[in-house]
Amino acid sequence: MRKDEQIKSLFQRVCCDDNIQAYNELYIALCTRLIHFSASIVSSFHLAEEIVSDVFIALWQKRNDLLHVENPVVYLYVSTKNLSLNTLQQQKRHQHHALDHINPDMLSIAPEAENGMVSAEVSQKIERAIRSLPARCQVIFRLIKQDRLSYREVATLLNISSKTVDAQLTIAVKKISQAIRFDLSDEVAQTFLRIDS
């Protein structure tokens, strides 16, 4: 399921073989995730697109010095975070040491409505439940559910412990579950329960 191995192999081909094809594939595989992450920091998709492009330009320019990088995904997320914070600092001319002004609207996700499992109503309820969570909790949920990072990767990226990641994710799951559990009368859910039991 996880594409980590594929990404590691692409990264290796970029750094060891200067392979531009692998570089393009790596960009395609990761750009939207990184853009959403960056946009949550700088509050602009337009700016985030440029920041992620700059992260990949730096990757190409420094590729031969990056052979020691153990986890390319985390490396690219951390680079994106740092460059986003730098950009914000230049723009607003004051310090942002940590991700304390995150804009979680940029990270909001929900199940695809009308896919047979989830009605549009349930999908909206989930979205609302997520938006009601604290910003950091939303970021963690997004990084795990959508970006498929591991506890350790999220912990490294956000400078928190794996335990905190686990606790925050549990809060998110609880909130979302409670938002939809009263909806088990929902037609789609009923159908599912009947099939399942």
Binding site: H36, F45, M106, I109, A110, P111, E112, N115, E127, Q146
Partner: peptide
């Protein structure tokens, strides 16, 4: 399920 961004 596969979730999708709710915004952009």
């Amino acid at each position: 399920q596969n979730w999708v961004p709710a915004g952009k």
